[in-house]
Amino acid sequence: MPLRTRELLRLLAAINSRLSGDVSLPVLAVWAHRSQFDLHRQFRRLVGETPKAYTTRVRLASAAAELVSTDRRVSAVAFDHGFASHEVFTRTFTRHFGHSPREYRTRGLHVAGRRTAAVHASTVGSTAPCISLYRISTAERKPAVPLDISVRDLSAFHALVMRRRVTRDEIATALAESLPTVFGYAQRHGLTITGPPFARYPEVGMGSLVIEGGITVAAPPSAALDDGIEALAIPAGRAVVALHRGPYDCLPESYQEIERWMRDQGLSAAAAPWETYLTDPGERPDPATWETEIVQPVR
């Protein structure tokens, strides 16, 4: 029997709550009531990486955030993130980030400060586990729920994005590729991550659309970016903001409700809309609890 999305999310929640403990494949197979072979195959199909690669990546991301936001000893950080020894941690960390833990800490974040470091660490901790699962389909629909819609004045922000032209059915796949790439680039280069992942839609057509998947950063990078990753600056301005509660599959209905609300208020779009994924699916496995903020700049 295939591993259902809800079962996978519950398993990820269990893994993420025990990342300093034993989350090896035999243990996960017992939790999931499946054979090791079957779990390995289905986990990779749904998450895009093996259970071992997943747990190692999430542990390293969290450890890297702690290194630049605290003064704790490297050996203590290694132990608290499930690594058996300082040597194993250093070797694995260096292979993943291109710097040893001490070098990574010494370089620090590109925007220094205790407050920004704390924001960065908190954001990484809540984002890394399911960076490839935002917009995942659960094949669930919900009855229409009135949105919380308001008009706000938003501040300018900086972001890193990857741009793709896709069909509507390919949005989740595009984000599963772009968000981990952008997130990983930001962490490797010590960029200060300041908010959850988002997707922006600069062009929407009948057959396809352009999607920009990325993360917000405290300041634009000073070095040249890798191929496919772009710096984005969103200016301050007035926008309609709505909070969508529920599965990602129901987002189109929320966009339609926002359009109707704007017409009633005599507002028109002034720039591309975007959606920010406020809830980590691996922390809250029930899609009914997921929150997505939709922003439409207006004039």
Rank of each mutant, 00 (worst) to 15 (best):
G125F: 15
A139C: 07
R135H: 15
L133R: 10
K142N: 00
Y134G: 00
S155K: 08
T127K: 07
R152A: 12
S126Y: 10
G125L: 05
C130I: 06
V151D: 02
R152C: 07
I149C: 08
A128M: 04
T138P: 06
L147R: 00
D153E: 14
S155V: 03
I136R: 13
S132W: 10
I136Y: 11
D153P: 00
A156P: 03
D153L: 14
P143F: 12
P146N: 01
P143K: 04
T127S: 15
S150K: 14
A156D: 02
S155R: 08
G125V: 02
S150N: 05
R152H: 12
P146M: 00
S137V: 08
L154T: 04
V145L: 14
P146T: 00
T127R: 08
L154C: 04
L154A: 05
E140S: 11
L133G: 03
S132E: 10
T127F: 13
P143G: 07
K142D: 00
S126E: 14
V151C: 02
R152M: 08
R152I: 00
R152F: 09
I136F: 11
D148A: 15
R135N: 12
R135L: 14
S137D: 14
P129Q: 00
S155W: 04
A128T: 05
L133W: 08
L154W: 02
P146L: 09
Y134F: 15
K142W: 10
G125T: 03
A139H: 14
A139Q: 10
S150R: 12
I131K: 07
L147S: 02
R141V: 02
V151F: 09
S137Q: 12
S132I: 05
S126H: 14
Y134V: 04
I149Q: 05
S126Q: 11
I131L: 15
E140I: 07
R135S: 13
V145S: 15
P129W: 11
P143H: 09
L147P: 00
A144V: 06
S155D: 04
A144S: 09
D148G: 07
L147A: 05
S132K: 06
V145T: 07
V151T: 05
R135I: 05
I136N: 02
R152Y: 11
I149R: 03
I149V: 12
S137R: 15
A139L: 13
A128I: 01
A128R: 01
I131Q: 03
P129S: 05
G125K: 09
R141C: 06
R135G: 04
V145I: 08
P143A: 06
S126R: 11
L133D: 07
S137I: 00
S155N: 05
R135T: 07
L133P: 10
L133I: 05
